[in-house]
Design a protein around this nucleic acid. Structure first.
Length: 280
DNA sequence: AAGAATGTTACATG
DNA sequence: ACATGTAACATTCT
């Protein structure tokens, strides 16, 4: 669920909350497997008394640079999120890591499905080196996109979901971007013509920027859902054109949105606007 | 009320 | 290179 816009929203919130410059005085781990790089004990002793020097996003990872060259990297996977807790009180259900700050606040990592991971490393490149370009950065031009698509035989949707090809997209924003560009998710990636590449490049950047603008996408009311630092919902669900809108009219041609399965993932398309074969 | 589906990723196997 | 299947989990949906 948390894709690039949701992770960016969280990073923005963490910065706005004044976390940069604060020092971590104590860590608690209640589900040890959350810590991917070491034992829970070693994690706690290593992170203790480090100051947070910067917070940024790369792909769907949250990067916190700590003092003395250590980097804390967090991946939320499907249901991870951060929220404030109370010092001295036992953490609420599904809180697996707590970070007590030098100003008395407690940053809690909450993750119902327990897929989220914390990495503590001196060498971030090991984890991040294989990622594709950032879709919102200036290096991601239509020309670069075209070059990376050339010759690829995979279907366009699973390729866009591949973090080594392009960083940060997930199921929601891929469906939205493909609809915006009027491209069928099963199209062979290397078969897109120049106009389609340009449209898809623009579509990807548009849907991601819109997601960030509305502070992420929160679907439904379940707790397996995106909530930002202050437990606020994102507003982007109101701006989705196809995702989870099966049966609703396509905003472009008013035919009903269809749900199909592509690469084992639920996929939402307009069969009229997104053609697999050229009409005729 | 039991069983299926679920936004992510890594890894194993054809 | 690419497609497919599975596993990691708990909650929500059917």
């Amino acid at each position: 669920m948390p894709e690039l816009p949701e992770v960016q929203t969280l990073v923005n919130d963490l910065i706005a909350a004044g976390l940069v410059g604060r020092r971590i005085i104590r860590a608690g781990v209640h589900w040890p497997r959350t810590i991917a790089t070491s034992s829970a004990d070693r994690f706690c002793s290593q992170i203790r008394n480090r100051a947070i020097e910067s917070i940024e996003r790369r792909a769907k990872f949250i990067l916190m640079a700590l003092s003395n060259g250590l980097m804390l990297i967090v991946h939320l996977r499907m249901t991870g999120r951060f929220q404030w807790g109370d010092e001295g009180q036992s953490p609420e259900k599904h809180v697996h890591v707590t970070l007590s700050m030098d100003d008395g606040r407690v940053l809690c990592f909450h993750d119902t499905r327990k897929f989220g991971r914390f990495y503590l490393t001196q060498e971030p490149r090991t984890l991040l080196g294989g990622l594709g370009p950032e879709p919102l950065s200036s290096v991601f031009t239509a020309a670069l996109f075209k070059q990376r698509l050339a010759g690829r035989k995979r279907q366009i949707k699973p390729l866009l979901l591949d973090q080594a090809f392009l960083a940060g997209l997930g199921n929601i924003y891929v469906d939205e971007a493909l609809w915006a560009a009027r491209i069928h998710p099963l199209r062979e990636a290397g078969s897109l013509d120049s106009a389609e590449v340009v449209a898809l490049h623009a579509g990807i950047r548009h849907v991601l920027r819109q997601g960030i603008k509305y502070a992420g996408t929160t679907l439904g009311n379940g707790q397996n859902n995106f909530y930002s630092l202050g437990r606020e919902r994102g507003g982007n669900a109101n701006h989705l054109k196809v995702f989870r809108r099966t049966g609703a009219p396509c905003p472009c041609c008013h035919r009903p949105i269809k749900r199909i399965i592509v690469a084992q993932r639920s996929t939402h398309i307009c069969g009229q606007c997104q053609r697999l074969n050229t009409p005729g």
